[in-house]
Design a protein around this nucleic acid. Sequence first.
DNA 1: TATTGTTATACTCTATAACTATA
DNA 2: TATAGTTATAGAGTATAACAATA
Lengths: 162, 162
Amino acid sequence: MSAQTTTRGNDADLAENANGAQRLHTTELANEIEFLTARARSLGSGRANNMLAELDLKVRSYSVLSLACSGENPSQRELADFLSLDPSQIVALVDQLERRGAVTRETDPRDRRSKVIVATTAGRNLYKRAESIIRRAEDQSLSTLSPQERETLRDLLKRIAF
Amino acid sequence: MSAQTTTRGNDADLAENANGAQRLHTTELANEIEFLTARARSLGSGRANNMLAELDLKVRSYSVLSLACSGENPSQRELADFLSLDPSQIVALVDQLERRGAVTRETDPRDRRSKVIVATTAGRNLYKRAESIIRRAEDQSLSTLSPQERETLRDLLKRIAF
DNA sequence: TATTGTTATACTCTATAACTATA
DNA sequence: TATAGTTATAGAGTATAACAATA
């Protein structure tokens, strides 16, 4: 998905550490890439959501805001395609961001059905703060990896994600 | 995936390919490891769920079945911890698998509060078939990676997932 | 008093279909 | 006839609290 989902996140994992489900780490399941990807995502987006809460954002709304700030002037349809979300979910996300003055909908003059999402100045400021939080969250989630390993991971993921 | 979620999966991505949201691939967001992980997970579990449908399983129930077949005799509490799911969700998943005769709940004699989940013969047969489907799904999801790269990815993910 | 499993409930996320306005 | 955005709704997934049995 891309666009991700809220998850139980950190609390559950503290529980696991406190507890003793480490026996299960040697299991077949624990070595499946799909499982590991899902677990990494769950931990990562859980942490990111917790940290973004201070800006009243979630990973979802952050993603939309980020693309609105990208300079690519995405339409809602493009956001839906790229984030693997239904167009109706984009409506709700853009509504929220628009209500707080972070983005505006501008009708594309070349196709008046289409609405381009662009960030306001306030939206770009919000994004700057959110981006730095996301960077800290990512840094924490990847704390066991060296910079080189992080680049390797990024490249491998990029090849399977697109 | 661990604990995962159903996702829109393949259809959305065909739409993306058909469409032209490729502009957004150069975006900052598209290079964030968290985003790529989420997207990879979404594609992967979407595909796996589609393929597991013929066995009337999902990634969730497959994960529980897999751990029930692991020989580690996990309790429901351990399943919840390991899969980052709430204990009440485990109840529902085990109920389903128990109803179809794939697993049984056995009271742990050393702690009669705890119930150990063990696979039946039918459950192990079901798991064999599911496992081969999961392997095919994973193979398709990782088709752009060499065997070596897959191992690298597995190791990196393992270090951030646990 | 604390923990395992269970039930119930509310909330979020996801999927689908129908509508409108534009093309 | 088809597409972008919107609305409404139902379903799946998630989080929380309370309870019984057991420790």
